[in-house]
């Protein structure tokens, strides 16, 4: 699949997520960066937290984690390890090796903090920090 197709697919996916939350994703067709696209839906929010989620397409807890942070109006960068290119996979693998031996998803990063796994209590304190 080429980049354009992935972007289109991502747009549709993000739209599905933000719509029920009463947001318009207002995705900018010209914008190249998917994560910025997603964040642009929340321009009106001030002091939004930036959150990066490493995920797998097959992992329901990753989707739940994304939903949690989007509902809290965080700026979510959602990267799927299993569908990422070789270079991204390698860098995620290397980065994660400093948090864990295994590659358990989801991994949530915000500021300098990392949470491995789906745990809404820990997520809430991530947003407070």
């Amino acid at each position: 699949m080429d980049t354009k197709k992935i972007m289109d697919k991502s747009r549709k996916m993000f739209q599905r997520v933000v719509e029920p939350l009463g947001h318009n994703s207002s995705l900018d067709e010209k914008t190249e960066n998917i994560s910025n696209d997603e964040a642009s839906g929340f321009e009106s929010e001030t002091h939004t937290k930036k959150v990066t989620i490493y995920a797998l397409t097959t992992c329901p807890w990753c989707k739940k984690a994304r939903k949690f942070f989007m509902e809290k109006n965080a700026q979510v960068e959602y990267i799927e390890y299993d569908k990422a290119d070789e270079e991204t996979r390698k860098s995620i693998k290397e980065e994660c090796s400093s948090y864990m031996e295994e590659l358990a998803f989801p991994v949530i990063k915000s500021g300098g903090n990392v949470v491995v796994g789906y745990d809404t209590k820990k997520y809430a304190s991530l947003l407070e920090q």
Binding site: C59, W61, M100, A104, V116, G117, D119, K121
Partner: peptide, 22 residues
Amino acid sequence: WCGLYVHKDVEDPDELVQISKK
């Protein structure tokens, strides 16, 4: 880890959380 399986005595799986191995 993915919650497909739970201990036999678990009735409400939503009460369980993922604890990282670390």
